[in-house]
Structures are given as C-alpha cells and as structure tokens.
C-alpha cells in the first residue's frame, strides 16, 4: 500500500463530489488507521500536494514570448489553428511568461506537449543544418 494511493483516493472523492472534503479525509484516515499505516500520514499529505500541483499543471497552458504581450493578443494567438489543437476543455488557466532568450516568436506549452515557434529554435536549426552538430 502506498501513500500516493491513499492521497489519490482522497483527491478523487473530493473531485467527484461523492463526499465533502472533511468527510473524505475522515473516511480515508479511518482506513489508514485500520490498516495500521498512520506512519504514512505525512507522506499522504505531501502526495496530495503533488497531485494538486500536477492537476494544476495539467490545467495550465504556458505562453512564453520574448516580449510581454497583452492578454487579448495571447488569447488571439491561442485561437490559431496550430495552437488550438493542443487545447482541451481541461485547460482552465493561461500563464504568460517572458523569456528574452527566445529572441522572437512564441512557445506554447502544456504539461505534455510543447509547440515551439521561437526564433531561437529556428536559428539553432539553421546552425545545425550548417554544421551538422548539436
């Protein structure tokens, strides 16, 4: 039995709304005690935090540009075909980041896919084609 399994049970109970948060915790902690796994409780707490962070990442899209873009421009960008196909109803948050090293262009990133249209990557590709290194 792993701490992550208990943590997932609590998280799923709360997420699906089967039980309230307090009831879910009470219920699972009861099972933990019954199994003699009280020593796992700190680990369960950390595992719940990790699941929440992972879920948040899963729901977040990062838009990275070389210069700061206003929100409207970012939304318009995400409506473009090449980016729209990686979006899903699960994506609830858009985080804007600035990375001057990109030089120009955009990177759109979810937790499992990245679409890179930055000038830095393009220039690296030219360099690679010229030198067959990298």
């Amino acid at each position: 039995m792993r701490a992550s399994w208990y943590a997932k049970a609590i998280y799923d109970l709360v997420e699906t709304g089967v039980m309230s948060e307090e009831k879910s915790i009470e219920h699972v902690v009861g099972v933990v005690r019954m199994n003699g796994h009280e020593y796992m409780l700190p680990k369960i707490v950390r595992a719940i935090e990790r699941i929440a962070q992972k879920r948040e990442k899963h729901e977040t899209i990062e838009v990275i540009t070389a210069n700061e873009l206003p929100q409207e421009e970012v939304s318009a960008l995400l409506r473009k075909e090449q980016f729209a196909r990686i979006l899903s109803p699960l994506h609830k948050r858009v985080v804007r980041k600035v990375d001057e090293t990109l030089i120009g262009g955009t990177i759109v990133k979810t937790d499992s896919v990245r679409i890179d249209m930055s000038y830095k990557s393009a220039l690296r590709e030219i360099y690679q084609n010229m030198t067959n290194t990298l």
Binding site: Q82, V113, R114, I115, D116, M117, A122
Partner: peptide
C-alpha cells in the same frame, strides 16, 4: 527558411 512549428512531447 520558414519558421515552422515544432510540436514536441515533453
């Protein structure tokens, strides 16, 4: 040269 999208699984 034409900047193209690079879709990568990460």
């Amino acid at each position: 040269f034409a900047p193209k999208e690079r879709s990568e699984k990460i």
